[in-house]
Each structure stands twice: as structure tokens, then as C-alpha cells.
Design a protein around this nucleic acid. Structure first.
Lengths: 396, 396
DNA sequence: CTGAAAGCGCTTACAG
DNA sequence: CTGAAAGCGCTTACAG
């Protein structure tokens, strides 16, 4: 079954049928310049008859605008970016822009290629969640060539651009402080922390250190908040409770969580730093048969579909993900339109700590912490005890 | 801080610097036609010096190709489409195509606009999950204008196009038959079923009816499989157990599930037809405090991150989502490249029934089915009993 | 292999 | 308001 591919009608076709010049036809259809009502009607009729649709590419070549926003996600499959994307595209559409979405998979080379592709396709501006906050020369170059850039979820000291973020340090600080207030002193953290940067951790360990958020990846920021919450509460940080996966990888999170639970002195609480870490770690917790929150309090970054479906429901730090995307789009469009005279700025959005059922006051563990797998959630709840007054960690 | 926007170098700029014609420069950089090695080098050097990047838009205007695939998702936020999108874009990139992603939100008007936008942007082909399998004239028109279309997740008798789908009738039949084999006779189903089509259901109710999959939406296909499994097993279909939400809406699924659980003769099993229905319904089940699988077996369509995180782990019908996306992209690219002589065809992918912990043999319910909310998962497991030999539904 | 010219389908000054 | 012409930045026949 062969479909006859009749050539698409072009502007000259319409103009000829309407008996006017191409220029007039373009003006009538494109909403620029001025035309008499009579010509407009003739052209509109002709266009309809020919089923005419303007070739936006051709127009873009001429005008230099594409009415398109390029987006570089770090992981398009994660609920975080999926939701943010919706915020971005809702705002974009409202303003007559479409979005061209790419994915870096947290890989710098992929990100550079993605940015290049967007630039080649002449997007009017770029929203990017940079894979590496230290390596952003390609973004600076885009800016230099006249394509505005808005950073999303991560900011960088090496780029003078608008950014829409959450204060990861503060959010983690709030989360971990809450756990400490519940009496926990052995709090594990599972985080990506791609770059080891152990030397920087040492620097972070100096309470007075002034660390710019623009040199921290999201997971580093959250680690810093974790550390600061400990210092401020006078709770020592246990190195073995800080678990680095090295990548945004569910399996790695699973393994790190398993490992930390198998310690002679296991944690009584855990802070999971993003949704991938949460999925992997939570699976490990479930497989280990540890009862939550009796033996282990769990607090996770990012609210997800399923956080209320598990038993007990997960306590979380919720980010305003949709709104973050929407705001990034708004800022970018303002730059594209040239309506902003001010220099680049950073917009910090607020998070919300939602306490559900997975966090509870610490309880003295009398026996072994491991229980048979699958028994999880079927045992009677352990008696809840007030936080132990002393700061001593439970005896081995 | 003003960034100096120096004009981007163009092909004539490069040609001038290299001391050759624009045509030669284009050939050297574009990989078409032939150039001497010496010219190539001079041009490459010049391009590098000027930081030249070809304007792909301009090239597209000339060639009529954009190396871009348009995608119309029904819900970009759902894990199903997010994963499929990855399959699509992985294959697309491998073949030198990028993707332009739009979203219909299951709305026909949005879909028409999206398709129009993609066409205006001159995409080389379109992958679409049509919101309405009956209303696809806009897609036929795209095909007529020479833009190939591949249907994804849903096929239509009204469009002669390639399609990549799962056999929803068969998959649901398999799922529900399994529940029946476990002794369940009161099996609820929660499904979108936007159009009431009650008259068609009546037709479906005739076992012999030959229903073409191309006239069914995914949820209708799954309903049909549900019905057929009942007939073939000689189990009567209870109208009150067929719950229609009318939209892909988590809240509506929650309400329908609540309602069916509140029936005097509640179901002993439930089949959840897609991931949104599952999230909403599962929340209702949890809030109702019904113990799974003791009082209610749960079987859901689509495997998700969290299906193994809840207690008990959910039994599911898993679709090969990534592979479905990849295959759709492969087929579309083959059409674009013109390498296919055969007519359009439908590719049906296999699903897998994964039995985990949420499905079990039916048990006679001695007392009331409702238990206090939140008690869920904390009670000792009910004794498991073999399926009752008679087909009688439990007494009220 | 190479270049001058035309052309893709639009929009934009520029006269009238 | 209207049209003839030039131009956006490429690629494509067409001669040489």
C-alpha cells in the first residue's frame, strides 16, 4: 500500500493561489507586518485549501529563533527529572516554546555531546543539571555564543548563570538533626559521592570551614549537612557509617546498605540521600528483615509514589520538584526574551520534612539486630523507649 | 556582567579562512561529496580556529531531513513512558537521530497539537501512543504527507501503520486465569476505561465475539482478557467488581478500590490494570488495613521500582518496556531510511507473569474483612487454606 | 576534485 | 498596505 507523497504546499504556492506576493502571504499567516483584511482572508482561504503548514525550520534559519528550549537531564528515567520535566514543559508551552530533551546519564562526555547537539539545533536556551559542577566550560561557551543557560538542581561556582536549586546542606542538616533529636547517634548515610574527595571531607570536618555550595554536587552538599548536624549536636561522626556508592546506582546502594547493616555496631538510623539510593537501600533493609522503625529509623530525600505504600510509610524530605522545573523554565524564558537586566542569580527553593512512620526514637538494641528475612513487618512492634540520655553507642 | 556575543562563524567564514569555496568547505565538513586531502585539512583547521559549528537547521531546510524522531507520550511522568523513552532514545542516538518528546496527557486535542508541532518542526518520523485508538486521522494525515508513524503501546484499526504492543487481552487473561486457579471467584478489576462503552461490554460478554485488538484501548483489552478468563473457567462475572475510573487518575483508582472493598461481598482478589491504577488502588488497600494476600490477593500490570519494596512484594505482569521502545524506534528508523518494502505490521511483545507474595490461594473469610487502618502488616499471617472446592462466594 | 550559482522555505528591510 | 529582491546558512546539481 503506497501512500502518494504529494509535495507539501509552500508559501509561494499559497501566495499564487491567493494572487498575492509571497511576502504578503507570509505576513498574513505569520502574524508579522501588516496586511489588509481582504488579503488576509484570501491568503487564509488559500492556505486552508492547500492544507498549508509553515516550515518552522525555514523560518528559524531566517529569524535565528527556534522557540525551543533545550534540556539536559541527568537521568530522564528518574521520577525526579520526569516530574521536573513536566514543570519545565508546562511553562514552556504556555509561553510558546517547545522542549528538546536530552539525557547525560550523569556522564560529562554525554553532557557535552548533548549540549553540542542542542546548540547545533539552535535552541534558544538551555536548562541543564550538570553532571559535574566543576566542569562546565561547555556551558560557559554556550553562554558566550549567546545561548542563555539555567542550571537546574545543581549550581556551579565556575559558571555565572541562573540556577534553581534546593539548599542540600540545609535540608540534610534538618533531616539529620531530627534523627539526632530522636536520640540517634549512629546514623548511616548512603550517597553517590562520585569523587572520593576524602581530603575535602577532612576540610568539611572543620566546623568553621566555609564551603561554597557551588563546588558541591548534590550528594556532597547532603553529606555536608549530615556532618554539620553531627557537630552542632556534639555527636561524633563514624567514618564507617558514611557509605559512598560512587555512582547513581541502585545495586551499589543495595550493597552499601547491606554492608553497613552487617557492621558489628550497626546504625540505628539511616539517611538516604536521593531516590536511587533510597530504592537500593530500602531493598537491602527489607531483605535483611530489619524492622523499621523499631531497629532502624529511615529518612529519605525525595518523596515518591511509593513512600506511602510501604509499611511503615517512609519519612521524607520532599523537594518541590515540579515547581523547581517550572521556575527554571520561567527564568530561562525571561533571559531569552531579554526582559531581564539583572545579573544571574540563584533561586533556592524550600524543602519539607514529612515525618511518617519510618522514623522513631532510638531504642536500645538488646540482642542481635538481624532477624530472618521476610519476617519484616510481621512481628509485633517493639516497645518504644525514650532516647537514651547518654551519648554512648550501644555496647557490642 | 555582559557577555560579548560574537557572531557564530558560518560556512563562508570557514571557506574564506581556508581559501576555498563554500561548497568545498561544506563538503569537507559535511561528509558528502569528495574533497582532496589537502583541502580537507585546511578546512578542518579553519573550522577549528573559528570554533565553527554547522547550523543543522539550515542544512535541514535544504535536505528535507532533520535526523529527528518525534515522540508523543501519553504521560511522560509515568515510569512506563519514562522507561520506553529511554529505549527509544538509545536506539535513536545509535542511528544518529535525536528525539523531540511531547506529551498528550491522554488528551486528543493535545495530541493533535503535539503531532502538528512535530510536523512543523519537520521531524523525520513519529512514534505515538494514541490517546484514542478510534481518532487517528491526524496520524493518517502525517503519513499521507510522507512522515512515517509507528504506534506505541496501542494499535488502531483506523490506521495502516506499524505498531509495537503487548497483547493486553492475552496478558490479562493469563493473570486472571492464575487468580482463578488459586481459587478466586470474586476478582475485582480497576481500570481506566475512559469511554463507558457499556454496550460493547455486552458484546464482549458473548464468548464467541471476535473483537479486533485495534479497536480497544489498553484498558479495554485488559478488561476483555479479564472477562474471557472468567468465561473459560466458568466463573460468573460480577458487574460490581468491574471498576471504571474514567481516567488515568490515581485518586479515582483510590476511590474505586475503596468502594469495591466496602461491598457487602468484597472481592478476594484484585487485578490492577496499569501502574497508575496500581498506585491508587494499593494505597486504598493499605489504608483499609486489609491484609494481603490473606484477605486479598493483588496482581498488578507493570513491574515497578517499588513492587518489591512493599510487604508483601507485589505479583505482577511485567512488560518489556525498554525493549518495546527500542523496537518502535528501530521500526520507525527503518521506514525513514526507506529500507523496508513490506507493509505495516504489528509487533506483539511477550509479557511475564511474576508471582511474588501478594497472590495466594483464596481463603474463606470467617469474619469482617475490614480491619483497623495501619494495623496492616503487623498481624500474624492468617492460616493459608486450600481453595474451597465449591464455587460459592463467601457468605455475607 | 573544485567553484559559481541556484535553491530549500521562509522573513526582512526597502521602495512604492 | 504591498511587492520585488535580498538574505538566513546550508547543500546540490552543473560545469570545468
Amino acid at each position: 500500500m503506497t501512500v502518494s507523497r504529494q509535495r507539501r504546499a509552500t508559501l509561494p504556492d499559497v501566495a499564487a493561489l491567493a494572487g498575492v506576493s509571497t511576502a504578503a502571504a507570509g505576513r498574513a499567516l505569520g502574524g508579522y507586518g501588516s496586511v489588509s483584511e481582504e488579503v488576509r482572508q484570501r491568503v487564509l482561504n488559500a492556505a486552508e485549501q492547500l492544507n498549508y503548514r509553515a516550515n518552522r525550520l525555514a523560518a528559524s534559519v531566517r529569524t535565528g529563533r527556534t522557540d525551543t528550549i533545550g534540556v539536559v537531564c541527568a537521568d530522564i528515567e528518574s521520577p525526579f527529572f520526569a516530574r521536573a520535566l513536566r514543570g519545565i514543559s508546562d511553562v514552556a508551552h504556555k509561553h510558546g516554546f517547545s522542549t528538546l530533551v536530552t539525557n547525560s546519564d550523569e556522564d560529562l562526555t554525554s553532557e557535552r555531546n548533548a549540549v553540542q547537539l542542542l546548540l547545533d539545533k539552535q535552541v534558544d536556551g538551555i536548562i541543564c543539571a550538570p553532571a559535574d559542577v566543576q566542569q562546565v566550560a561547555h556551558l560557559a561557551q554556550a553562554q558566550g555564543a549567546g545561548t542563555p543557560v539555567v542550571l537546574f538542581d545543581r549550581m556551579s561556582d565556575h559558571l555565572d548563570a541562573d540556577a534553581v536549586i534546593v539548599d542540600g546542606v540545609k535540608a540534610a542538616y534538618q533531616a539529620v538533626s531530627r534523627l539526632i533529636a530522636l536520640g540517634h547517634e549512629r546514623i548511616a548515610i548512603v550517597a553517590e559521592l562520585r569523587q572520593p574527595r576524602e581530603q575535602d571531607w577532612a576540610r568539611f570536618l572543620t566546623p568553621a570551614a566555609d564551603v561554597s555550595p557551588g563546588v558541591l554536587s548534590p550528594s556532597e552538599a547532603r553529606l555536608l549537612g549530615y556532618l554539620r548536624a553531627h557537630w552542632d549536636a556534639g555527636v561524633p561522626v563514624r567514618r564507617e557509617l558514611v557509605r559512598r556508592t560512587g555512582a547513581y546506582d541502585v545495586g551499589a546502594a543495595y550493597r552499601q546498605m547491606k554492608r553497613v547493616l552487617a557492621l558489628k555496631h550497626p546504625p540505628t538510623a539511616v539517611f538516604l540521600v536521593d531516590n536511587l539510593m533510597t530504592v537500593g537501600s530500602y531493598r537491602a533493609i527489607r531483605d535483611s528483615g530489619i524492622s523499621v522503625p523499631e531497629r532502624l529509623s529511615v529518612l529519605a530525600f525525595d518523596d515518591l509514589d511509593w513512600t506511602v505504600l510501604v509499611s511503615p510509610a517512609l519519612s521524607v524530605i520532599a523537594q518541590p520538584v515540579y515547581e523547581m522545573g517550572a521556575e527554571a523554565a520561567r527564568q530561562l524564558i525571561a533571559r531569552i526574551r531579554g526582559g531581564r537586566e539583572d545579573g544571574p542569580g540563584t533561586t533556592v527553593m524550600d524543602v519539607t520534612l514529612i515525618e511518617r512512620e519510618s522514623t522513631a526514637p532510638v531504642v536500645r538494641a538488646p540482642g542481635p539486630v538481624l532477624a530472618p528475612a521476610r519476617a519484616h513487618g510481621r512481628r509485633p512492634p517493639a516497645a518504644r523507649v525514650a532516647p537514651s540520655p547518654s551519648g554512648a553507642s550501644p555496647g557490642g
